[in-house]
Write a protein that binds this DNA or RNA. Sequence first.
DNA 1: ACGAAATATTCAAAAACATGCATATAGATC
DNA 2: GATCTATATGCATGTTTTTGAATATTTCGT
Lengths: 111, 111
Amino acid sequence: MTDRQLEEQALRFKLLGHPVRLQILDILRRNPECVCHLEAVLGKPQPYISQQLRVLREAGVIVDSKEGLNVFYQLADPEVAALLNVALGPNLPERNGARQSVSFCDCPHCS
Amino acid sequence: MTDRQLEEQALRFKLLGHPVRLQILDILRRNPECVCHLEAVLGKPQPYISQQLRVLREAGVIVDSKEGLNVFYQLADPEVAALLNVALGPNLPERNGARQSVSFCDCPHCS
DNA sequence: ACGAAATATTCAAAAACATGCATATAGATC
DNA sequence: GATCTATATGCATGTTTTTGAATATTTCGT
């Protein structure tokens, strides 16, 4: 276990060591979601969510794709996915099968 | 995934999100070690190490047991062990079989 | 081109964290 | 009981993180 590996892994853990980011990742590991969706689910102000998304994006943990006005994010780091499986339980299809549309989000995917 | 669970897991991740603590845990998951051993291996001042050990101890991640003057710590949280297995690779007996005595540590276990 | 909606950026203030250093405690030995 | 050794604690300080709020940017529809 080299020092560099250790630093890298510590950095990954640090990203997950934040309740809001952790919840964002838990949502995104299921399906890609737009910012407004996360805003609706988390109940936090949009700029705040965008900031956390930026942290995750710049770390390479998530990637974004634009669809019109909306930006959809999804999990892009298999190592993080593995850690989430251990910490939060597996992301089973039968558990999360149908994407849950959220009534109070009116992005193209929800309505 | 309740909010409390999320907070708990985020806290656990936060503990691991620190290079020195991560390395300490990587050592302790192999064998119980005394503070002077960690001091020798990590090359950091003893009070600094004791501080990190306290953080981990108060979080319930490690436990201590006294042997004379020495205090031996060991990993006590199976969930953390599982995360370490994923992040740092499994703690295989054939990889770490014999406890590595460190020449520059003269605790009872090393000498 | 203009207005509106979705998202991003920037800045500031408070809180938390990391780290170094001085000192305190506890147990062993003489 | 004095002293030595291993470990713990307390405190000061600089740095990072967190979070809120204002504002900017992008893209679409008209």
